[in-house]
C-alpha cells in the first residue's frame, strides 16, 4: 500500500495548493516531441501578467494614501490589514485596495477556474470578464 505524500501548503490549505503550482504542471515537466499536447487555449488566462507593483497613476495614488495612514509607531511586526489600523477610513478602503494589488491575481485565477468548471473551459475572452469581476468586488468592498 502506498502513501500519498501530504501536500504542504504554506498559505491556505485544500486545493489552493493546485493554484500555487499550476504553472509547474503546465509549463514544466517532461516534453516528448513525438507526443502531442492537449491545447491549453482554455487557460490563457493564467498567463496574465500581474506585476506585483504596477507603475501607474492608480498605484501611486493608492500608495500615497496608504502612506498617509501608515502609523510608523506601530512597528513593522504589527500585523497589517487589521481593522484597528485601517480604522473607519471608508473613502480609502485599504483592505479592499491592498487585496486588489496582491491577492487580486490569485482571485482572478480562481475565478477563471470557477468559470472553467461552469463553461467547460475559460476561453480567451474571459480575461476581461474575470478582471471586471475582481474590480467590481473591490468596489463593493469599498462601499
Amino acid at each position: 500500500m502506498t502513501v500519498v505524500p501530504a501536500q504542504q501548503s504554506g498559505g491556505g490549505g485544500g486545493s489552493s495548493g493546485l493554484y500555487d503550482v499550476l504553472e509547474l504542471v503546465l509549463d514544466r515537466g517532461l516534453v516528448i516531441d513525438a507526443f502531442v499536447r492537449v491545447s491549453l487555449v482554455g487557460i490563457e488566462i493564467l498567463k496574465i501578467d500581474v506585476r506585483v507593483v504596477v507603475a501607474s497613476v492608480d498605484t501611486y495614488l493608492r500608495f500615497a494614501e496608504a502612506c498617509n495612514r501608515l502609523d510608523l509607531e506601530s512597528g513593522p511586526n504589527k500585523s497589517p490589514g487589521l481593522p484597528e489600523i485601517v480604522g473607519e477610513v471608508t473613502e480609502s478602503g485599504a483592505r479592499g485596495k491592498s487585496k486588489g494589488a496582491l491577492s487580486g491575481a490569485a482571485e482572478t485565477i480562481s475565478d477563471a477556474f470557477k468559470q472553467s468548471r461552469d463553461d467547460g473551459s475559460a476561453e480567451r475572452e474571459s480575461r476581461p470578464r474575470a478582471r471586471k469581476t475582481a474590480a467590481s468586488r473591490r468596489k463593493e468592498e469599498q462601499e
Binding site: T2, V3, V4, P5, Q7, S15, L18, V21, L22, V25, L26, D27, R28, G29, L30, V31, I32, F35, V36, R37, V38, S39, L40, G42, I43, F113, S116, R117, G120, S121
Partner: peptide, 30 residues
C-alpha cells in the same frame, strides 16, 4: 481539456506513483 479536475488527476497520479520511488513527471496534457 485543461480543466481543474483533469489537472488534479494528473497531479494525483504522479503523487501516488512518486510515493513508490522516482518518477519523471510529464507536462500536463501529453
Amino acid at each position: 481539456r485543461p480543466k481543474r479536475r483533469e489537472l488534479l488527476a494528473h497531479q494525483n497520479v504522479l503523487a501516488e506513483a512518486g510515493a513508490g520511488g522516482c518518477v519523471l513527471p510529464m507536462r500536463f496534457g501529453s
